[in-house]
Design a protein around this nucleic acid. Sequence first.
DNA 1: ACATTGACCGGTT
DNA 2: AAACCGGCCAATG
Length: 108
Amino acid sequence: MAKTDMQQLRSDIYDIVEQIPRGRVLTYGDIARLAGYPRLSRQVGHLLSTVSPSLHLPCHRVVNAAGRLAPHWPEQQRLLEAEGVKVEPGKDGTARVRLKAYRWALSL
DNA sequence: ACATTGACCGGTT
DNA sequence: AAACCGGCCAATG
């Protein structure tokens, strides 16, 4: 994967995340597939971690495939709940969302 | 070059 | 539901 492709992936990610409707969520894997790089879910996560808040990108609507929220970002839960996404703590205390209910419906 | 590290994924216990 | 496992790949030291 060349550096230029990473730049391309970054802008594609921005486009996709920008279109996630209020109250819905997507997974890193979903975004990687939509961008055309189905095996780069980890890179998607890393790129999103370096997004400047000034872009007003709704990256709080991105969770992992288990519905778990991003580490090192406690704020995310409050942002999701503010738009009606229910976040319930599991037995171990880790917060999760029900993908079955909130995942942005896509034809994959 | 080599090893380790992640905002990860899917299948199998 | 959760733990475990093997795979994944750019970035980093």
